[in-house]
Write a protein that binds this DNA or RNA. Structure first.
Length: 596
RNA sequence: GGGGUUGUAGUUAAGUUGGUUAUAACGCUAGCCUGUCACGCUAGAGGCCGCGGGUUCGAGUCCCGUCAACCCCGCCA
């Protein structure tokens, strides 16, 4: 194959920018051969670049040499052409193409590069390609218009947010990627140090401490589009390395953070999707979210609220309920599904299986018929109890009641997720509708399995000081922390930070972090708090998750150029890979046989 | 660590109760075609049925194991 040099040719236009305004112009175009239709005496080529496509026409009457050369063209060859923009006659207009009213008669063709037979086609009309195949051939996959749209929108979104933050007095700072391991939280990715044998850097799980230090250093307003690393198992919306819009500012209250962030999010949705976000965004207490929705990230596109029946169940005849209600930390709750009495027996069996995923032992249900309750458990309830449950849930004839009775966490988990599942089955959550909310006043601590507890947010979160004095149990202490939730997904969260050394020391004590440990792990932070730390607060938004909403992607991998598989490997580069023994030796590392 | 789904030409899929030469569409190759745009017509090439073992006269199909991708639980301050 004879290839041509680009020479002094300069591209005059991007393809999809061409239109009737350009009629008669001599243009120089460059791109990929998307498809070729050879009619013998005339050859049509759809030329493609990142903006879109335009049809270029090779014919002997336009130019004999390029017409003959065009017979060599195949899919994904890279070409440059010079030609004239002409109008198509009315019967030749292609309304499916944005540039379908014009075409370009080619006078000169340069073949810049060829292309071997591809593992899959680039067009969007093709049948779906398996994701394994796409990830292995990611370069080609990224050439597809959908992926180009996603990644270019990602760039635009970052730009919008950067502009917004600069306009609001924020400065962009970088923080180290090679840093030190901190306790709690996720598993760290470690990097061995060559010059300090036996010592390791950790990749940051977030720039949390550095941004606090920048506040103490007096920079007032910080932001960063920051890569974060957590060595935990993956999900459809979780990658081991991900990106946060991370920000922090000094001398502010929670209100200031929320107002600034919701302004940014509103501008982002307006400028990328032309969607108006109604401000201010609704705020909800964590305790209310858990009570009404069984989740700290409620989807508010629909109702299906939960009602607490614990008190009422304590003396009811149904042992499953009464035992749960009487036990320490037990809970009985119900969700009313309007019109849900048409769920079939199989639907209800499916839902019962569904809640078992979340460790519920079963799912009690009641259909409200004109004759009253229809349910395997009707016999355990007296008319007064039935009337009260109907009244408190607002259930009407034709509705369905779904009950959960177990330990608090199991009930909330099961019913919270059941709520989302029922909404999905009944199509209550419309696409293209974005319902935000703030969830505030998270608990400071969360109980762990071994009887201890750890920070809900992180150990640098400001407690509600009066709770510190009055709470009977550490888990009753609230924190000044807030999450931004969109359609049932946590987009990000933040908090007022502890800026006083005395409070920080108390929190470390409560977390059973000794002075020595605190000194060793966070000495630099404690010193900073002693050196004139201003009150400060901040938040981080998951950029990848935001992009999932902006693109409508079902998976986080659709908005990341080079994502990892569920086993945290990259099918393109085959990372992680083995390393040369010499490299290990230099790092003072020895491998041991993996235990099986 | 656990539960589930999937794996058959380059791609996407079909393949019946275990039975003869494993199908189709798209793509690819060659030829023809001056208005197509999912171009059309003719011909052709293309297979370790994920991998390993077993049952059987005979396995894409049944059994056991294993690998990979995906979804979920645990995990993710």
């Amino acid at each position: 194959m004879q290839l041509d040099p680009l020479g002094d040719w300069k591209r005059s236009d991007y393809l999809e920018h061409l239109g009737k305004a350009d009629l008669g112009r001599q243009v120089t175009l460059m791109g990929w051969v998307h498809s070729r239709r050879d009619h013998g005496g005339v050859i049509f080529v759809d030329l493609r670049d990142h903006t879109g496509m335009a049809q270029v026409v090779f014919g002997p009457q336009h130019n004999q040499a390029s017409f003959e050369r065009a017979q060599e063209l195949r899919s994904e060859y890279v070409v440059a052409i010079k030609g004239e923009v002409v109008a198509r006659s009315t019967d030749q207009v292609n309304l499916k193409m944005k540039t379908g009213e014009i075409e370009v008669f080619v006078k000169e063709l340069k073949l810049l590069n060829g292309c071997t037979a591809l593992p899959f086609q680039i067009g969007d009309l093709q049948e779906s390609i398996t994701e394994k195949n796409r990830l292995k051939n990611r370069t080609l996959d990224l050439r597809r218009p959908q992926m180009q749209h996603n990644l270019i929108l990602r760039s635009k979104a970052a730009h919008v947010m950067r502009n917004y933050l600069h306009e609001h007095g924020f400065f962009e700072f970088e923080t180290p990627i090679l840093t030190r391991s901190t306790p709690e939280g996720a598993r760290d990715y470690l990097v061995p140090s060559r010059v300090n044998p036996g010592h390791f850097y950790a990749l940051p799980q977030s720039p949390q401490l550095f941004k606090q230090l920048l506040m103490v250093a007096g920079y007032d307003r910080y932001y960063q589009i920051a890569k974060c690393f957590r060595d935990e198992d993956l999900r459809g919306n979780r990658q081991p390395e991900f990106t946060q819009i991370d920000l922090e500012f000094a001398f502010v209250a929670p209100d200031d953070v929320m107002t600034l962030v919701e302004g940014m999010v509103a501008e982002l949705f307006e400028k990328t999707l032309a969607v108006k976000v109604e401000l201010p965004i609704r705020r909800m207490l964590y305790a209310d979210a858990m009570a009404k929705y069984g989740s700290d990230a409620p989807d508010l596109r629909y109702g299906l609220e939960l009602t607490d029946l614990t008190e009422l169940s304590k003396n009811c005849g149904f042992q499953v309920f009464s035992q749960a209600a009487q036990s320490e930390g037990g809970l009985v709750k119900v969700m009313c599904v309007p019109g849900g009495a048409d769920f079939s027996r199989k639907d209800l069996d499916d839902l019962t299986e569904f809640v078992k995923i979340y460790r519920a032992k079963g799912l009690a249900w009641v259909k409200l018929t004109p004759e009253g309750w229809q349910s395997p458990i009707t016999k355990f309830f007296n008319p007064e109890e039935i009337a009260e449950i109907n009244q408190r849930t607002g259930a009407k004839v034709g509705d369905l009641l779904l009950f959960g009775a177990d330990k608090k966490q199991v009930v909330n988990d099961a019913l919270g997720n059941l709520r989302k599942e029922v909404a999905r089955r009944r199509k209550l959550a419309e696409d293209g509708r974005f319902v935000f909310c703030w969830v505030t006043d998270f608990p400071l601590f969360e109980a762990t399995e071994d009887g201890g507890f750890h920070s809900c947010h992180h150990p640098f979160t400001m407690p509600v000081m009066e709770d510190m004095e009055t709470a009977k149990h550490p888990t009753d202490i609230r924190s000044i922390a807030y999450d931004l939730v969109l359609n049932g997904v946590e987009l990000g969260g933040g908090s007022i930070r502890i800026h006083r050394p005395d409070i920080q020391k108390r929190v470390f004590q409560m977390l059973k972090i000794t002075d020595e440990e605190a000194r060793e792990k966070f000495g630099f932070l404690l010193d900073a708090l002693d050196q004139g730390a201003p009150p400060h607060a901040g938040l981080a938004l998951g950029f990848d998750r935001l992009m999932m909403f902006l693109t409508g992607a079902e998976s986080i991998r659709e908005v990341i150029a080079f994502p990892k598989t569920q086993q945290a490997s990259c099918l393109l580069t085959e990372a992680p890979g083995k390393v040369d023994p010499a490299q290990l030796k230099e790092l003072n590392l020895a491998l041991r046989k993996t235990q099986s």
